[in-house]
Each structure stands twice: as C-alpha cells, then as structure tokens.
Design a protein around this nucleic acid. Sequence first.
DNA 1: GGTCTAATCCCCTGATTAGGGTATTGTGAA
DNA 2: TTCACAATACCCTAATCAGGGGATTAGACC
Lengths: 214, 214
Amino acid sequence: MNTKNMSNKVLLYEDNDLLRESISSMVVLDEGMELLGAYGHANEVEEQVKSFKPDLILMDIEMPGRSGIEATKLVKKFLPETFVLILTVFDDSENVLNAIKAGASGYLLKKYIATRLFSAVEEIMEGGAPMSPAVAKLVIQSMQKPQHTVDYGLTEREKDVLLSLSKGNSFKLIAADCKISIDTVRTHIKHIYEKLQVHCQTEAVSKAINEGLV
Amino acid sequence: MNTKNMSNKVLLYEDNDLLRESISSMVVLDEGMELLGAYGHANEVEEQVKSFKPDLILMDIEMPGRSGIEATKLVKKFLPETFVLILTVFDDSENVLNAIKAGASGYLLKKYIATRLFSAVEEIMEGGAPMSPAVAKLVIQSMQKPQHTVDYGLTEREKDVLLSLSKGNSFKLIAADCKISIDTVRTHIKHIYEKLQVHCQTEAVSKAINEGLV
DNA sequence: GGTCTAATCCCCTGATTAGGGTATTGTGAA
DNA sequence: TTCACAATACCCTAATCAGGGGATTAGACC
C-alpha cells in the first residue's frame, strides 16, 4: 500500500492544544509523514476518515465528546486498512485492552512521544505493533488465564466431572465418560455446587469456563 | 524478589546441542545471570524446577518428549513466580498464542538471540514482556479477531436469552431478566438449541462462551 | 393482499436435575 | 488406631428442563 519513498498520510486527534501543536510540528517536519489534519475532538471522525483516507491516525483517548476508543472502532469500521496508534497518558488495563480490541495497532504512552514516536510509526507502517513494555505486559496478562485466582478446593475427581459437564455432557454421559455410576456423578455434582457456591449446571459451567477451572 | 546486584538463577531447555552450548556460554559469561542447569528435554522439568527454584527459564518449544508449551504450564503451576522466556524458530500464531496462554512472559525468536537475549532477559526480570514486533502483532490480532467466527443466525432476542443463560440463570430468572414469560423463554431456548445444534443448557452455554457468542 | 419471520404466550408428557438423606471402602494423617 | 476425607453407590421427592404440539401479533418483503 505504501512504498518507502511515499509519505504516509496522517490524521491527528488530540484535545490538548499545546500537545496537538507539538505533535503536529513533529509530523510536519518528518519527511516520512504528511499531516492531513489535526483535531481537538473526534466527533466528526467518520466524515474526516472517509474524505482524507489516511494511512495512519494518531489518536488520544480522553477527548471531549467521543472517546478515542469509540473513534477507533469507527475508523476500523469504515476504513479497516487504516492504522491507529493510540497516544495517551493512561496505561491502565481497561483502556489498553479496550483500545486494542477496538482495533488499535499500537499504543504509545505520551511520555515516550518525543523519543519514540517516529520509531513507533515506522514499526506500525511495517505491519508491527509498537507497545511500551508495560503495555505489552498488560496484553500478555490478559491472555493468561487467571489460573490461581480462587481455589475452590475441588478434588481431582470433581474436576474431572466438572470438565465433562462443561463440555455439555448430561449426567448419564458424564457417568460413561468417567466410568462411574450416575449416582456417583450426582454426588460429585452436589459437592461441586457446594464448593463453587452455585445451584445449577449452567452456573457451574459458566463459573468453570470463565474462571479457567477447566 | 531480586535486587539489581543479585544474579538471576536461570534454567535452560533446548534440544539442539550446539545451540544449548552456545546459549549456556552467553548466560555463564553474563554477570547478571547464574546458570543452574541446561537440558536437552523437559521431561523432568517438574522436579528440576522444584529443586532449583529458578528465577527465569529459557525454553525451547520443539523438544523430544514434552513440548516447551506443556513444560511452561507445569512450571507456572508449581512455581508461578518463575518467568519463562520462549526461545524458538516458530512464529506462527498457534505456537505463539499457546505459549503465552501457557504462562510465558516473553517470546524471542532464535534469530534474535545473539543480539537481544540480554535485553529481553532484563526486560522480563523488570516485569516486562519482551516480544519481537511480529509476535506482538500476532498477539494483538488474536485479541481483535474472535468476534464473528461463525454465524448461527441467532436473533437479537435469542442472543439476549443466551447471554442470560450463560450467566447461570434458570428459565425463571431469564424470564425476569428479559421481562417476558417463562414460556417465551422456553420457545427462544428451543430455537437456540436448533440453531446451535445442541440439546441441553450446558452444551449451549459451553458453546456460547467458548465461541465468543456472549 | 399474501407470505414470512420474530417475538410473544400457552399446554402436555416424559426425562432430567436439585437437594436432602445414608452407607461402604480405602487411604493417609494425627 | 482413630479420624477425616475422597470416591463410590443407592433412595426419595419436588422442581426444572426437553421436546412435541398450537396460537397470536406486528413488521418486513414481494
């Protein structure tokens, strides 16, 4: 889409006037980028994206009106091939993960803008995913199943039964699966309900899957 | 756990003799790391981890016997505070994502070992998550994708009911939740079963959660 | 206007599950 | 040797669910 000697068309959304000016200057002075527009809010992002067809958008999260995360969703909806680099002071897990789920290709904390903006842009345009170490850690943690959040004290056999249950098996099938009688299955199930503090299959399955017990 | 002037205790698993020797040398010669052991397979990883209590494990994926991904799961099970850095030639999405889900803290392609091993180790020990740009991209893509894998043609109302069911609600509670009669719930449930090709609640909930329908 | 579908509601019957017991065996800890 | 507990198995009753009907209303589409 972009060759090395073509400059990348860039849009900037940042509500802080000073910062917007400063980033604008950086972009304008860089020969690899061409600034198409810089806005203090993202309320007209849909029209702007459609008319400018940028290659890259630098997006703040906290802006008056529509948030950068909402704006990112819209951008990816109407021009999916556009890259979005989030520029923000927030590095809490909620914002980071939501931005990435919304379709952002990279996440740069504002304190690193001066030193790393150009390398981040370069990385993004080459198909990479620039992230500060702290952000990368958050992303990885979100994928690692919360293994030892709570220990419900399930025995091995109870875990077997719960696993079979979570696959959608009836008591009858669980009995066959575990090679025990259906009454024993019932006994295990009762203990599982007590330990998980639930009162029916669906609750147990939901809890088992969502808390990584299976 | 580790202060800057304490060397980190390291275990290495790598089946290629030449590469194992070469990485061992790098680790031994670095004053920040202390090599406790280097093995060509991970079949006794459980005992080794328990007796050495390493701070960091450098783990190959493809090894005879137990894979590095299985080994990583065991390590995190018995010594959760141990960091695991995957060293591998594979950068396909399946291996990368499985390794991360298994609990790996970082992922370094072998071609980068010579130039980036020390910085990756440093980053990991500081709580970061070193990844090559290609790997970071894979991780991000995996979070952006899993929305509409399969379309079962559920109507909006059916999705509402399925969502409520997946939270562990009984038909009675779903009825209250959606403000409809229990009979209507039953009708929706019947249609959901048909469309999802399942025959009971647990199967439906399992499918809904695992395939991201809710 | 006719057809289709989503969403709502009702009934019935047989199967399954929930919640309450009790009991035996084997194992491992106190 | 007790004691606790995991794993196995059985019984009973009330509640809930599965699978089969049928029916009405409102909108969409042709």
